[in-house]
Amino acid sequence: MKQLKCACIEGLDATSVDVEATFTKGLPSFSIVGLATNSIQESRDRIKSALLTNEFTFPPKKITINLSPSEISKSGSHFDLPIALLVALNDVKCSLDGFYVFGEVGLDGKLKDTHSIFVLILSLAQQGLLKKVLIPKASVEKISKIPNIEIYAVDTLSQACDFFKFDSKEQSRVINSEFSYKKMTINKKSYYYDTQYVYDFKEVKGQQTAKRAALIAAAGNHNILFEGSPGCGKSMITKRLQYIMPPMSLEEILEKAKLDSLDAIEPSFHPIRVFRSPHHTATKASIFGGGTQSAKMGEVALSNNGILFFDELPHFGKTILEAMREPLEDHRLLISRVNSKIHYETKFLFVCALNPCPCVISNYK
């Protein structure tokens, strides 16, 4: 029996998965067991096509692929590459120990990137489980930002097979890249920042008190509420707040990129803190997260280490405003469902804006 290491996502973190393969006598068949969802079951056809179009001989045996531990539900096309390698190398003597392998396999054998690969590798590296990883070249730009791991990249399934068959691993080695942004060092720790701003406070005319309050809020990560008539500059100041927030550490930049990937957004690794501004008609589930089968992130979790802006605060539902107490006080949020219970970090700067009370305006007139 041969095996390779892969992983699946549970909430925000990765769980290591052993991909095992056995080849026994019997009627030729190809089955995948271990609570594999449709996205993994479909990989059988992709792998067959990739092997046959690249002149591999599909073994005429009963092939069983097991994803262990079997009690955890697994999904994602990144399991294609480890499964294909175990089938292609079934009769080849080579060492597969110590490597995690990720990648989607195309019908022609070309390896592709997926949104989950960065999240999985970063989480495994943070847990200290992953030291060496084989990935598609399409994933290199993102994965090379993760420090303290050995990264090897190939472009096709044939190259991946040669990687293990022959002693040529150094040719596929990828050098970990550093951020090109400016940085400052405080207590021997680097913090990155950018001086290119989409919005600038110099565009705000007047409102000296509000700008001073915004500066204090950004420096000390204090929550702030702006009250004023429509058009006086509440939203204008708030949109510029993220550009005067403190510089970001490497861990914060990677965490931001991780949340982007989980939200199906291509991570940019830009050292500007995230800015989330949900509309007041947003549902409670979209703000705090939810889901029937598995809990999904909401705006509160996606704004971690950044800014969460509620414009027109009184128009948000009462249940939403009352539920904000836990993430603001504890900086953590528990989403509890029958099938999953997930903790989210919620260390964000909460900014609100509202118009003056009508009775105040009436008295003023």
Rank of each mutant, 00 (worst) to 15 (best):
K62R: 14
H315F: 08
V101G: 04
V174L: 14
G289T: 00
L254M: 08
L52G: 00
V33Q: 10
P60T: 01
E71C: 00
S68W: 01
F275W: 14
K61F: 06
I287A: 04
A219R: 04
S73L: 05
S31H: 11
T53E: 07
S75P: 01
C8M: 03
N176H: 07
C161P: 04
G306S: 12
P230I: 08
F348D: 09
S139I: 04
P230R: 09
K132N: 14
L321P: 12
L89N: 03
K169W: 10
M184T: 11
T346R: 11
R46G: 08
T57P: 02
G298T: 02
E55D: 10
A295R: 04
I186P: 11
Q293Y: 09
E251N: 15
F23I: 00
K284H: 11
M297R: 12
K205W: 02
N221M: 15
S268P: 02
N355H: 09
A138G: 14
E10G: 00
S261E: 11
F226A: 06
V119R: 13
G317L: 02
C359Q: 09
V105H: 07
S75K: 03
G291K: 00
I320L: 11
L308F: 12
E203M: 08
P314A: 03
A257Q: 01
P136I: 02
L111P: 08
V17R: 04
V351W: 13
S158Q: 12
R276T: 02
